[in-house]
Design a protein around this nucleic acid. Structure first.
Lengths: 349, 349
DNA sequence: TGCCGGAGCTTAACCGGTCAAGTTCTCCTG
DNA sequence: CAGGAGAACTTGACCGGTTAAGCTCCGGCA
C-alpha cells in the first residue's frame, strides 16, 4: 500500500503545537522559540516532510516552477545538442532552490502563446525562459500583458522590458573572419539558421560588417534552417558554383558536420580545398575527421545565468540584461590556408 | 499591471449560480442542465478560464503533471539526440490531455531517488517515466514503495511490477549480424554503451547469440560509455590490433560517428576497409560521409506510447507491458563486403 | 502596584477547486 | 392525491499550506 504523505498537521500533532507554529518554524519566520523550532525541524526530518507544492501555490503566490517552451519541430530539436545543454544549465540553478522545470514542445508560435496563457491561468509556473527570439516577436507583448516574469536567452534588443542573457556574437564573428582572412581566404560564405530569428539577423549584420572591415568583398549569406539536410543542399550548391567560397561558416554544429559530409562526398579535401567553421562547439565537432574549428561558449553556464536571473525576477528583484562571456574561436583541423591550386571539379554523382 | 486570473467563483457570479454548479458544468458531470452547462461554458471561454492546477491538485489527487529524471552527465546528454526525441514523443501524448512534463537532470542515482521522494511528498507529479533501467535497479523498489505510478522505457525484465514499453533489440541485432555475415564479414566487434544498463546486457547477450547462430566465432564485446571520446579510443585500439575486426557495431549514433572519424584518421576507407553500423538512426547518421548503416526505430512514437500508458496507469487502469515495433536495419554506405586485401597498416600519428 | 510591550504561541480566514450530503421542485405513478 | 424518484441545483466541509489578527503570559519600569 502506498505510504502516507506527512503534512504539517502531522508534525504539529507530534510536537504538540499548532499548524501555524510548524509553518513558522519550518520557514524560518519569527514567532517560535529556538527550542521549539529545532524540535519541529527534527520531527519534520524524521517524517521526511516536504511542503506540498499545490498547497503552497494556492495560498502563497508561487508554484515553485518555471517553464520552457521549445518551438522547433522534433526533427530539428533532436539533433542539436544546444537545448539539452541549456536545459542542464537551467537545472543547476533551479534545483539549488528547489524549483522545478516544466517543459513543453510545440509546433508553432501560436501554440506557444497558448501555452503561456494556459500556464498563467493554471498558475503552473512562476516565470518562463524565452528562447529563439524573433524579429518583432509576438510573445513579448503577451508575456508583458500577463505579467509573467520572463528572461530572454539572446540579445535583449527587441525584448521589450524583459531582461536578456546574451553574448557578443558580433565579436566572435570578427574573430572568425580575422582568422580566415589571416589564413588567406578571400571568398567566404555564411550558412545561416532560420532567418526569422533575431540572432540570425544580428549575426548576419555582424558577419557583413566583419567582412567589410577586413577587406573581404566576396562574401555571401545563404539561408538554411539548422537541419543537416538544408545545410547539405546549400553547401552542395555553393561548392559546385563557378567561384566556390574557400571558407564556410555555419550557424550551428549540425549544419557544419553536414557540410563536411558534402565536401567529402564531392571529393574535396577539408581543409585543403575548403575550410569549415561551426558555431557552437559541441562534442560533435570533435567527433568528425577532421575535427571542426568552432565558436565555443559555455552553454550550461549561459543557462544557469538565465535561470538565476529569472528566479531573481520572480522574487521581485529588478533584473537587468546580462552579457555573458564572449564566445571564442577554437581552431582545429577544419581550417587552413586555401590551396593555391583550384580544387578539382566536383565529382559528378 | 498584471491581469487578474479568472476563477470559478467569477464565473459563478456572472452566471448567477454556485461555484459547484460551475465545477459540474465544466467537468462534464451530471448535476446541471444542458442549457446551464452551455451558458457556463460560454462564460468560462469568454473569461479565458483554465483550472488552477494547484487548487485541483489540492482537492483531487492529481497534479496533472508527470516527471522525467535524466541521470546522465551533461556532456553525454547533450550530444545524443535520443532524449530530445523521446521527450517530444512524450509531449504529443501528454499535451493532448493537458498534462505537463516536469524534467530534472541529476548527476547520480542517489540524487534521482531523492528527487522521486521529493516529488512524491510535494505532490508535484502524478507519475514518472523511468529510463536507463539498470541491473537490479534501486529505483524500482523505491517507486513501488511510494506508490508512484511509473512506466519503464526499455525491457521490463527486472522492472518489478511496473509495466515497460520496449522493443525487441535482439531481433534487430540478428538482422545486423545476418547483414554483415551476408556481406562476408567474419570478424565483428560490438562497441557497447554503459555496461551497468540493463539494455546493454540484453544487447550483449543477443549479439553473442546472434553471432553464434550465424557461425561467427571471432566476435568481440568492448565496453564504452556512449561518448564519442570513449568510442574513439576503443575504436582506435580495435583497428590497430593484430587482426582487426572488419565490421564494428556501435551502441549509439554518436559513438558510430566518432568511430568513423577514427577510421578516417587512421587512413582507412569506410566501407572498403571496415564496415560500421550505428544503433539509433538519427539525422546524424545521414549527415556524415559515408552515411551510416543504422538500426532505426521511431523514438517519438516510442515516447508517446510510454506516456499514454503512464496516463492510463495514473487513471488507475491496469497497464501491461507493450512491445513496440521492432527496430529495423537501414542499409547505407558504411557497410559493404570486406576487402579481400588486408587494409594498409594504420598510419602512425 | 499597575501598566506596557513583546515573545511565543493560537485561532480564524483564505487560496480555488472537489466531493458528499442536503434541498427544492417537478413529474410520474399507484 | 399522497408518495417516491430523480433532475437541478446549493450548502458545507475539506485538501495543506500561508497570513493576519488575537490572546497569554512574563518581565521591566514608573
Amino acid at each position: 500500500m502506498p505510504v502516507k504523505r506527512p503534512t504539517i498537521a502531522d508534525i504539529a500533532r507530534r510536537a504538540g503545537v499548532s499548524k501555524v507554529a510548524v509553518s513558522y518554524a519550518l520557514n524560518g519566520q519569527a514567532g517560535v522559540s529556538e527550542a521549539t523550532r529545532r524540535r519541529i525541524r527534527a520531527i519534520a526530518d524524521e517524517l521526511g516532510w516536504s511542503p506540498n507544492t499545490a498547497a503552497r501555490a494556492l495560498s502563497g503566490a508561487s508554484a515553485y516552477a518555471v517553464g520552457l517552451v521549445v518551438c522547433r519541430p522534433a526533427r530539428i530539436l533532436g539533433v542539436e545538442p544546444f537545448f539539452m545543454q541549456l536545459i542542464s544549465g537551467f537545472e543547476t540553478a533551479l534545483s539549488a532552490r528547489s524549483y522545478g522545470l516544466t517543459l513543453q514542445v510545440v509546433a508553432s508560435l501560436e501554440a506557444e502563446i497558448e501555452v503561456y496563457h494556459r500556464w498563467w491561468a493554471e498558475r503552473r509556473v512562476d516565470g518562463v525562459i524565452l528562447v529563439d527570439l524573433r524579429v518583432d516577436d509576438p510573445r513579448v507583448p503577451v508575456l508583458e500583458h500577463l505579467g509573467l516574469p520572463a528572461i530572454v536567452i539572446g540579445n535583449p534588443r527587441g525584448a521589450g522590458r524583459m531582461a536578456g542573457v546574451w553574448s557578443d556574437d558580433a565579436a566572435a564573428l570578427v574573430e572568425v573572419v580575422d582568422h580566415l582572412v589571416g589564413l588567406g581566404h578571400t571568398r567566404i560564405a555564411r550558412v545561416t539558421g532560420l532567418p526569422e530569428l533575431l540572432h540570425t539577423r544580428i549575426r548576419d549584420e555582424a558577419f557583413t560588417a566583419a567582412c567589410s572591415s577586413a577587406g573581404v568583398s566576396d562574401f555571401r549569406l545563404v539561408a538554411a534552417d539548422y537541419t543537416g539536410e538544408s545545410s547539405a543542399s546549400v553547401t552542395r550548391a555553393l561548392l559546385s558554383s563557378a567561384a566556390p567560397p574557400t571558407a564556410l561558416v555555419y550557424d550551428n554544429d549540425v549544419m557544419a558536420v553536414a557540410g563536411l559530409g558534402v565536401a567529402q562526398e564531392l571529393g574535396l579535401s577539408v581543409p585543403r580545398d575548403v575550410s569549415l567553421v561551426a558555431w557552437d562547439d559541441s562534442p560533435l565537432c570533435r567527433l568528425v575527421h577532421p575535427a571542426l574549428t568552432a565558436i565555443s561558449r559555455d552553454i550550461p553556464a549561459y543557462g544557469a545565468h538565465a535561470a538565476q536571473r529569472l528566479l531573481a525576477a520572480i522574487g521581485g528583484e529588478p533584473v537587468s540584461d546580462f552579457q555573458d562571456t564572449t564566445p571564442h574561436l577554437v581552431v582545429r583541423g577544419s581550417t587552413a590556408a586555401p590551396s593555391p591550386h583550384p580544387p578539382p571539379p566536383p565529382r559528378p554523382l
